[in-house]
Design a protein around this nucleic acid. Sequence first.
DNA 1: TCTTTCTTTCAATATATTTTGAAAGTTCAG
DNA 2: CTGAACTTTCAAAATATATTGAAAGAAAGA
Lengths: 170, 170
Amino acid sequence: MQLAEAKSKFIANWGRFGTNWGINRTMAQIHALLLVSPDPLSAEDVMDQLNISRGNANMNLRELIDWGLVQKVIISGERKEFFSAEKDIWKVATQIIRERKKRELDLMIPVLKELSEVEGDKRDKAVKTFTDTIQNIRKFSEQADKTLDAMIRADEHWFLGSLVKLFVSK
Amino acid sequence: MQLAEAKSKFIANWGRFGTNWGINRTMAQIHALLLVSPDPLSAEDVMDQLNISRGNANMNLRELIDWGLVQKVIISGERKEFFSAEKDIWKVATQIIRERKKRELDLMIPVLKELSEVEGDKRDKAVKTFTDTIQNIRKFSEQADKTLDAMIRADEHWFLGSLVKLFVSK
DNA sequence: TCTTTCTTTCAATATATTTTGAAAGTTCAG
DNA sequence: CTGAACTTTCAAAATATATTGAAAGAAAGA
């Protein structure tokens, strides 16, 4: 397969993949394009290569920057802004974990705490099932919270080394 | 807070949460409703409690069954079908991991293998960046594959015990 | 300052997803 | 069988999300 074909296959697949993760297709495609570009690209490059409008490119690049996956790059002598993506996938993954934890888990935990304080007779089956389920989710969430924090702190080598060995040797 | 209010708050939040995960809001709400219901519910119960149409209830219950999160339950003497959800969140989580791995990672891995065989001169910067990035993603995916398989096999106690301790003590 | 180049915004439009509900299909007791 | 009770389907409608492109805004060189 030639590079051009491989590149467009990669972009298409990364886009499809992204939609399963609550990320819109275009954002994932821009990310894919930057991941395989040796040099930073301008908004214009992105528009041309993906056939999208200026507004769309601008908006999704901003969102990628917001997620910490893409950075603006100044190229001396150039007036335009350029963009480049972090290429180390372990760093990409930990950054995504960091952001999603902040946007989801950290918001869910206080809600669960509030819900666990429901009033009512514990001998009432409906009350018991509710509180038991919430407790179970709470416990799980708090462990997940700690585990994800540790993953964020961990370095790639440790993850790809000990953790996997630990898991697979079980 | 009274049970009714807590229940509807839980359903609303679980629904909001679900949309971040590529699951539609109604499906997540039905799941939430079944999670806190002591007894199995009929399609009619679900329709009434969530104010949704028959078709919608039917479709999303089917999808939940397809994901392995909900089961049909026969109640003797009743002609209707009833539905109940697995309440152990660790089991829910491993089931979701199992399914998403099947639907996403297992499809991505062969694509990456194909893409890693791109032709071209390695001294060409564009080719080098492409192959390096794909290789990096491949390595990560294969480790993630093994890690997730191990998590699926692991039991709750082990997860909530050793793994977390291991992570947080790092 | 003025002009050019580039970036951002946002209302309108296009596209995709979800929901409805009536009709068709199925099951089963009598 | 037959008919009542229940489930499934699916085209149309409603809703939500993404995209466009022109206009406004900002930055910087002359």
